[in-house]
């Protein structure tokens, strides 16, 4: 039997939880699909699906097999692709959409320059989507925001980005050279999507609260239209967009931790991870993790204990 092909059928059924739907996705009839799954179960000597319920459920053995099967399928797919493209191998990379045009361009250009003969296929993806894409083998390596955890995920060196604030040029806060988080009180915030960046989203809002900024409303997205219109402020690196002014946040109260992530380490992935660290430091102003400032509280007697 073609074990890899059978494993692929298995992953599709596991995702769909339904033989009929899986068959449609695979472009085949249901009976041969059921037969092939049965044959895979015989080959492995274990039942992979519990078919007694209305919905197909993975057995414990099936659950254990699923990530491994995905990896085998992805690796074999890569292997075929390598052969197909000959020398022109492709490294599929995902980057956060709000990393900034300059940083993305610098990263892609630098990697092309340093890794001749390797084609870079970059895509924009939020952290949560990258985790899924990595486990399915759709991408080889990503640049993710922490905190993030997923079984089998491995991370490169963690860098820290201390975002500033983007304001409409009509905002009176642009008069100062820097802005305190507390000064943003009463304003609405435009932040990356919660479902795309669940960890960093929660951490950013909690840091804002701790520093005296509770946004009246949180909008999700990356288009700076709301900032331009003066309806919201956003955090991020400096951008050159007429009508939008960037100011550093006083005391660097926010620290976004960023690193590369992968499941299968290849020399290409390692090379990309090294390039990413260097480029993000140079073009995106990121620093080593230890450099993140700690929150200071300066005591004043009028706010003292029981004062």
């Amino acid at each position: 039997m073609d074990l890899v092909r059978h494993l692929y059928y298995f992953t599709v059924v596991a995702e769909e939880r339904h033989f009929g739907n899986a068959a449609i996705r695979l472009g085949m009839a249901q009976p041969p699909l059921s037969q092939r799954i049965k044959r895979l179960e015989e080959e492995l000597g274990a039942r992979l699906f519990d078919r007694s319920a209305r919905q197909v459920r993975l057995t414990e053995a099936g659950r254990l097999l699923l990530p491994e099967a995905r990896e085998v399928v992805a690796r074999v797919e890569r292997l075929r692709e390598l052969v197909r493209h000959g020398e022109a191998r492709t490294l599929k990379v995902a980057l956060p959409p709000d990393l900034g045009a300059t940083a993305i361009a610098a990263l892609v250009a630098r990697f092309r320059e340093e890794s001749q003969g390797l084609r870079l296929a970059p895509a924009e993806m939020w952290t949560a989507d990258q985790v899924g894409a990595l486990s399915e083998g759709l991408i080889d390596v990503g640049v993710v925001r922490h905190p993030v955890t997923a079984p089998g995920l491995r991370f490169g060196q963690v860098l820290v980005q201390t975002p500033g604030v983007l304001l409409a040029e009509t905002d009176p806060l642009t008069e100062g050279s820097s802005v305190h988080l507390q000064d943003l009180a009463g304003r609405e915030l435009l932040l990356f999507p919660q479902e795309g960046e669940p960890g960093a989203h929660a951490e950013t809002l909690s840091d804002c609260r701790r520093n005296g900024f509770v946004p009246v409303e949180v909008h999700h997205g990356i288009g700076l239209g709301l900032v331009l219109a003066g309806s919201a402020v956003a955090f991020g690196s400096e951008v050159s967009l007429p009508g939008v002014v960037w100011r550093p946040l006083l005391g660097s109260p926010l620290a976004w931790r960023v690193s590369t992530a992968w499941r299968v380490e290849t020399p290409e992935v390692a090379a990309f991870a090294a390039t990413a660290v260097r480029t993000l430091k140079e073009s995106a102003g990121m620093t080593d993790e230890g450099a993140a400032p700690v929150r200071q509280v300066r005591r004043r007697p009028a706010m003292g204990f029981l004062a």
């Binding site: 507390q182 520093n211 005296g212 006083l250 005391g251 200071q296 509280v297 300066r298 004043r300 009028a302």
Partner: peptide, 12 residues
């Protein structure tokens, strides 16, 4: 003086 600097991380 202190009222002009309503920040936890600024000492007055």
């Amino acid at each position: 003086l202190s009222s002009g600097f309503p920040y936890d991380d600024v000492a007055v």
